[in-house]
Simulated scan of single mutants.
Amino acid sequence: MKGPSTGGISVTITGFGFTGATLVRLGPNGTNFVIVTDTLITAKTPPGTGTVQVTVTAPTGTSTQTVLFTYTSLPTLSSLNPTSGPTSGGNTATLSGANLSGATSVRFGATPATILTNTANQITVTAPAGPPPSVNVTVTTPATPAIRCPTPTSRRPPSAICPRTPARQPAATPSPSSAAT
């Protein structure tokens, strides 16, 4: 299991003997949880760092199996250059930020771009064709399904000035599930 260091994602823990459980921990941090059945718990991850052990404390004791959760650094986007391009697409755009390694997709609105290069701090893409006005640009990485660029790109002639509108917020929240016993 893995998720962002900010916590807050749902995880599913399976096993047995969960009836009457009083505590679910990810590392040293307890978290909110719901006992669904004697063999199933859902929990929200607390904030944390690194790789930690997941444990459940029930009337019969605390689990001792090695079930791990890895906290990942969330990707962030700080800039998009250029901030405008032709409606026919085909231009190269560079997205800068942090924790961008392994990007699995970049979308201009709902349309995927072609990823040319990808490093921890920068992604270069070929922008897809699309209609005018501005569209949000989102990046999907293994750490989170989608993050939005703080500046939408606009489908205007390259000489046009694109308004800058800050909007740094996840477009989706991951919900991994894994088995713990």
Rank of each mutant, 00 (worst) to 15 (best):
P152G: 08
L26K: 05
T138K: 04
I147W: 04
T51R: 10
T51D: 08
G85W: 10
N81D: 04
I41G: 13
M1T: 04
S10C: 09
V135R: 12
Q122Y: 05
F16K: 15
A172C: 14
P4H: 03
A58E: 02
I123S: 08
A167P: 00
S79P: 07
T151F: 12
V106K: 10
T64K: 04
G27I: 05
R148A: 09
T31R: 01
T140E: 08
T37W: 10
T6Y: 02
P128R: 00
V67P: 00
G3F: 03
G15M: 07
T124W: 06
F33K: 00
T94I: 14
G97F: 01
A58F: 06
S178E: 07
V56T: 06
F16Q: 14
I13L: 15
S63G: 15
T153L: 09
I35S: 15
S96I: 02
V11L: 15
T60I: 13
N121T: 15
T138M: 10
F69I: 02
T57L: 12
F16M: 13
G30C: 08
A98K: 06
T140V: 01
T141I: 06
L100T: 14
V36R: 09
G3L: 03
Q169P: 01
N118K: 02
L80G: 01
T60P: 00
P82W: 00
S84L: 01
C162R: 14
G130T: 07
S154K: 11
S96Q: 06
V139H: 11
G97Q: 07
T14K: 07
A143W: 04
L95N: 03
Q169T: 15
T104A: 01
L26H: 13
P112L: 11
T151S: 07
T165H: 14
T144K: 05
Q169G: 14
P75N: 02
P176S: 03
T94C: 04
A110T: 15
S105V: 03
P86E: 11
L116V: 15
P4M: 09
A171R: 11
L26W: 13
G109P: 07
